[in-house]
């Protein structure tokens, strides 16, 4: 892969006698999101922290946009890479606006540019800049703090974002909303990102590719769908979870992909939208007991989706 944004080669790190990361290698293309998943202690956070040199590798190399990370001063390297940490770590003695402006200030941006960027990010993450900017982190809810944490990491317009359990410790509803928000934002901004998580569902939702790690090694690195259809024997199979893989595959596809033409009509009582997942469509079909569902956009029927088409996507042979 020529022109990879992040390239990791034979990266190794020991702590005492224990090998935390064992000769790992992978590439992340510009604009791609890679998830590192695995159980606690599998080396995923250590791998992430070696990319911005919070931990120095014993062996191997990291290339950022074609440059060896070792050639760059660690502080300068980190200022150029957004970093969202487990536990958020907002500075409690600074306002939300001051927190977000941390790296732009370090980089010496002028005041007006910083102020504009802070307002832009606050709006992007659904805050009212005038209201939220002067608040202190303690006055925010957990979900709001997490969002400010991500906004802070994106403040200096980095091309790369490293995220360590960015939406951990949140209730499932808030978590899902933040995951959707993040997906929308990163599509718009073209960010390259690596996300560390122990939650397979989060990896499926956020990532273009997933690397399953165990005992310091990458066992398999693939797109979510290929991972579900062809997991390697052993740990990957067990970790990915195969009981509901058909449903999981369905949730990776959108209704739009399978919609057939249908005559224009007003929306019936039961319908799906083109951006709903096949999983949602399947669930509705099972509930209603029908063979097909109308696809509706702006209150008009634009097509239909058939049960047989959906089942085919979720079958072993399909690709």
């Amino acid at each position: 892969m020529k022109g990879a944004m992040i390239r990791v080669e034979a990266l190794t790190r020991r702590f005492g006698d224990a090998v935390a990361v064992d000769a790992i290698g992978f590439e992340v293309a510009r604009g791609e999101v890679l998830a590192l998943v695995g159980t606690s202690g599998c080396g995923k956070s250590t791998t992430l922290r070696m990319i911005n040199r919070l931990i120095e590798p014993d062996k191997g190399r990291v290339e950022i946009a074609g440059r060896d990370a070792r050639e760059m001063a660690p502080d300068a390297l980190r200022r150029g890479i957004g970093y969202v940490i487990q536990g958020v770590g907002l500075f409690p003695h600074w306002t939300v606006a001051r927190n977000i402006s941390t790296v732009p200030r370090l980089l010496g941006w002028d005041r007006s540019r910083i102020a504009a960027r802070v307002d832009e990010l606050l709006e992007l993450f659904g805050f009212d800049p005038a209201e939220a900017g002067p608040k202190y982190p303690a006055a925010l809810s957990g979900g709001q703090q997490q969002r400010i944490g991500v906004a802070r990491a994106m403040a200096a317009e980095p091309e790369i974002l490293l995220m360590d359990e960015p939406f951990g410790a949140l209730d499932p509803v808030t978590r899902a909303r933040l995951q959707d928000e993040f997906t929308a934002i990163r599509r718009r901004s073209g960010l390259t990102a690596i996300i560390v998580t122990h939650d397979m569902d989060e990896a499926f939702r956020l990532a273009d590719r997933i690397a399953v790690m165990d005992a310091g090694r990458i066992l398999q690195i693939d797109t979510p769908e290929r991972l579900l259809r062809g997991p390697r024997e052993g740990f990957v199979r067990q970790f990915v979870g195969l009981d509901d893989r058909a449903l999981r595959i369905l949730s990776l596809h959108r209704v739009r992909e399978l919609a057939r033409p249908a005559p224009d009509a007003p929306a019936p009582a039961q319908w799906v939208a083109p951006d709903d997942t096949l999983r949602e469509a399947a669930s509705r079909l099972i509930w209603e007991g029908g063979e097909a569902l109308a696809v509706v956009e702006a209150d008009r029927v634009t097509g239909e989706i058939r049960a047989e088409d959906i089942w085919r996507v979720g079958t072993r042979g399909a690709a």
Binding site: L54, D75, A76, G87, V88, G89, F91
Partner: peptide, 23 residues
Amino acid sequence: VSAPVREAARGMGLSGVQRLWRV
């Protein structure tokens, strides 16, 4: 000073002196 706050300061590229004085 909580570990996440220190980690965040380091991860965002504050130098040792900046971390001490500002955080």
